[in-house]
Simulated scan of single mutants.
Amino acid sequence: MKLSQTFPFALTLLRPATALVGHSWSVSGVSDDGIREITFPINIANAPHKVGFYFAQQFTFAGQSNVGYTGLQPQVDSSAGSVVHAAFSSFVPGTTTTDQNCHDGADGGAGVSCAVNIDGTYANTYNLNVKNSEGTTWVGTLIDSVTGKETHIGSYTLPATTRGIEGSQLGFVEYFTGTKECGDLPKTAVTFGNPIVKGLTGSIDVPYEYGDCVAKSAFETHSVKDGVEISVGF
């Protein structure tokens, strides 16, 4: 799923995904050429260890109208313990990749999708780092904020006209496996940390409900230190 920044309550998704919560993030003082590195902290300590939820932050590259995104998806535990799935995608037509963690296409359209699974605790906050490595090539990295362990998610190269990441976009919570009744939505919670850019200040606006389960999903949100917490479900 991806959210439209022009129309905050409009969305493009593949059925039967259930769109739930959106929010706006911004970084002050970003130039017209954009930024070359940004980090999105996400904590899913209170998410169920089941496939279904996606907690994501979108970003727009200067010179392009389509977005990229990165985020976390809880998974069923393995024999080794809890599993965290990290995604890093581009919806920009003409995006290419030779990365073994990536493949062509994003949500059934143009772009590239990259992902990796790790054995890792849900208790720790994970930093999703998006960095320009050279030219128009961008790399996604998952970083455990407690242990410092870094895991490569993927990399892709954007068209030559692409510049850096712009200073604002949207994030979202969705239940991508879908549910027929809003009352059947599993309970979950996520904390989105303010985006981190060296030398600049990032922030997140108050999250809002959208989609078919507005006022039917037990949505709650409140500010926490350096971010916002969101909960939905029963």
Results as ranks from 00 to 15, higher is better:
65 S>P: 09
134 E>N: 09
195 P>D: 04
152 H>Y: 13
6 T>N: 14
99 D>S: 09
154 G>I: 00
59 F>Y: 14
64 Q>R: 14
92 V>D: 05
142 L>M: 15
230 I>C: 04
44 I>Q: 05
184 D>I: 08
185 L>K: 06
103 H>A: 15
68 G>A: 13
73 Q>A: 15
172 F>L: 07
30 V>H: 09
184 D>A: 14
41 P>F: 03
42 I>V: 15
231 S>N: 04
15 R>Q: 14
145 S>L: 10
71 G>W: 02
47 A>L: 11
90 S>C: 07
44 I>L: 13
203 S>P: 10
182 C>A: 10
203 S>T: 15
178 G>M: 04
70 T>F: 08
174 E>A: 09
183 G>S: 15
136 T>S: 06
45 A>T: 10
210 Y>E: 03
100 Q>S: 15
87 A>N: 05
74 P>C: 11
111 G>E: 04
49 H>Y: 08
207 P>D: 06
206 V>E: 14
79 S>P: 05
26 S>D: 14
58 Q>K: 12
44 I>P: 02
199 G>I: 07
92 V>F: 05
230 I>K: 02
121 T>C: 05
40 F>M: 04
209 E>V: 03
133 S>C: 01
140 G>W: 02
151 T>M: 11
46 N>G: 08
49 H>I: 05
140 G>Y: 00
151 T>L: 08
178 G>V: 02
111 G>I: 00
200 L>H: 09
109 G>N: 13
135 G>Y: 02
21 V>Q: 01
97 T>R: 06
161 T>N: 15
203 S>V: 07
165 I>P: 00
135 G>V: 04
3 L>G: 05
226 D>C: 07
12 T>D: 11
126 Y>Q: 01
17 A>Y: 01
36 R>F: 00
54 Y>K: 12
174 E>M: 04
177 T>D: 04
214 V>D: 01
175 Y>A: 00
142 L>V: 04
57 Q>C: 14
90 S>V: 02
183 G>V: 07
234 F>S: 13
71 G>M: 07
157 T>K: 13
26 S>E: 10
8 P>M: 09
17 A>C: 11
22 G>Y: 02
221 T>S: 15
123 A>I: 02
214 V>H: 03
221 T>G: 03
78 S>T: 11
123 A>Y: 06
124 N>W: 09
103 H>S: 15
216 K>N: 11
15 R>I: 00
50 K>W: 05
171 G>A: 07
90 S>E: 05
87 A>C: 05
94 G>R: 06
108 G>F: 01
221 T>C: 06
85 H>E: 08
